[in-house]
Nucleic acid binder design. Structure first.
Length: 469
RNA sequence: GGCCCCUUCGUCUAGUGGUCCAGGACAUCUGGUUCUCAUCCAGAAAAUCGCGGGUUCGAAUCCCGCAGGGGUCACCA
């Protein structure tokens, strides 16, 4: 059996989003699991829609996810001589003709067909005496209509009638090939074994099959991956629906492993109850035949859950490395050791690393006094202000006697509960608010231990001063 | 509109004629983990398997029709 070779072939018209990346991931997995090659090909034949920097951006996105190509990137714009060669071959065999019609004339044909209630087909309007192709006119494929049935690794057996066949442009008047022509030539030249792509191309399959025959090429295997749908409504996910640049996820501190796992289970599963997959597991278990035939909705909640899961599973040292660049500005002067302690406390509640500042800011700077934390608190709002002040003053004295290790703090706090005859819901809330001024924090004893004795007591003092006013 | 494809809890899905009055996960809700947020644990609610006909002793699973959704009909990919 010949080598498995798959490709990802985006057009450089902008950034990569989850839809494109999932297709790339599937192609990458098919290559990896067979010990084959994954090839990146930039389809830059539409000169008008090129976006500068897009190829680099696409490569960075793939690299971040760990889907680096084994070959490429190849640029179609640098392979024009190859397409020319194949085009000449088609002209010689009579399977391509120069198209002498202007867009306006084509439009007239179209209206003519519409008037006759017939579906418009170029092949019904072929020129009687096509001029010789000079490379300046568009070159059109001369189709030979017939029925086709073929196998799709995802969709199963597909078929279409001869009505689906028509002449189409191979070479444009600017000298560049169309996608319809170039991708077939390239897939053959690059010995691609599996063409894995989005479902927008299934309708053109009969035409492609017709062209393969005209070129004398054996078609590769095909796999059609359904679109990722927008969270609401039944439409393809687009930028408007929050289809972010894949590098945005990197910038927000999602782990690439999480994106890969999430994307793989969006329209694929291994038939078991497994919900999370590492890359290695995917390489072992992925199968095109188990990819869903219908489009799957993008579920932000599930992405967050997946992301949080991977963050929790990451060893602290590694997470600390990954978290560099995400700390709040005030953390700049804090020691690595201190930051690691903080990170250990918030690791289990992080969904993505950009949440770090909002979760940890009070560890690095004094937050402003906020009376509503007391007055809105279910337990504390029932108390008289003076009662709370007295309670906190007692707490302060007892905490002054602690060495601020977690164990000792727990001991002291428990003793305080006894002494004051208060519930944790009251006493701990009060101390937590006084020492953090934050609406939420990790467990009290751990928080105090990391904050340290001096800072904790100072904050209680400040809180008492503000609260008494 | 023509052609092609799809249709199981809100969402992602398991399920290929009986073990499914449909299982898992996310989200939601409840309880527990000495306070909050989160984690973790336990539990609840949630799909008459798009609808209607068949075939069969028996259908989410096979067949037909319908409806809804998607894709496509470019010198874009």
């Amino acid at each position: 059996m010949s080598e498995i070779r798959t490709r990802f072939a985006p057009s450089p018209t902008g950034y990569l989003h989850v839809g494109g990346v999932r297709t790339a991931l599937f192609a990458w997995l098919v290559a990896r699991q067979a010990g084959g090659k994954f090839i990146l090909r930039i389809e830059d034949t539409d000169r008008a829609r090129l976006v500068e920097g897009a190829p680099k951006h696409i490569q960075e996105s793939l690299n971040w996810l760990g889907l680096s190509p084994d070959e490429g990137p190849f640029f179609q714009s640098k392979r024009l001589d190859i397409y020319k060669k194949w085009a000449d071959k088609l002209v010689a065999s009579g399977r391509a003709y120069a198209d002498p019609f202007s867009p306006a004339e084509v439009q007239t044909f179209r209206e003519l067909a519409a008037g006759g209630k017939q579906p418009f087909r170029f092949r019904d309007f072929r020129p009687k005496d096509p001029p010789e192709w000079d490379g300046k006119m568009p070159l059109r494929f001369k189709s030979e209509p017939k029925d086709y049935s073929w196998h799709d690794e995802v969709m199963g057996n597909l078929s279409a009638g001869a009505d689906a066949i028509d002449d189409f442009i191979l070479m444009k008047s600017d000298g560049y090939p169309t996608y319809n022509f170039a991708h077939i030539v390239d897939d053959a030249e690059m010995a691609i074994s599996h063409v894995i792509r989005g479902q927008e191309f299934v309708a053109s399959m009969p035409n492609y099959l017709n062209l393969y025959e005209a070129l004398g090429l054996a078609p590769p295997k095909f796999a059609t991956v359904p679109h990722i749908m927008a969270p609401s409504g039944n439409k393809k996910l687009s930028k408007r629906d929050g289809a972010k640049d894949i590098l945005d996820y990197s910038n927000e501190g999602y782990l690439p492993e999480a994106l890969v796992s999430f994307l793989s289970t969006l329209g694929w599963n291994d038939g078991t109850d497994q919900e999370i997959f590492t890359c290695e597991e995917l390489i072992k278990k992925f199968a095109l035949s188990r990819v869903q035939k219908s489009g799957a909705r993008f579920d932000e909640q599930r992405l967050l859950w997946t992301s949080g899961y991977f963050i929790r599973e990451t060893p602290l040292e590694k997470l600390f490395e990954l978290a560099k660049g995400f700390w709040p500005p005030e953390a700049a002067k804090a020691s690595d050791d201190y930051k690691k302690q903080v990170l250990a406390l918030v690791q289990e509640r992080l969904k993505f690393l950009a949440e770090l500042p909002s979760l940890t800011n009070f560890f690095f700077k004094d937050l402003p006094f906020d009376k509503s934390l007391i007055t809105d608190n279910k337990q504390l709002k029932k108390f008289d202000k003076n009662e709370l002040v007295v309670l906190l003053e007692v707490a302060k004295v007892r905490l002054e006697a602690s060495d601020f290790t977690v164990n000792d703090l727990i001991k002291k706090l428990n003793a305080l509960l006894e002494e004051t005859k208060q519930k944790p819901a009251v006493l701990f809330s009060l101390i937590r608010i006084a020492t953090t001024n934050a609406p939420a924090s990790p467990a009290l004893a751990s928080t105090l231990a990391v904050l340290g004795k001096e800072r904790s007591l100072k904050r209680i003092d400040n809180f008492l001063k503000n609260f008494s006013d």
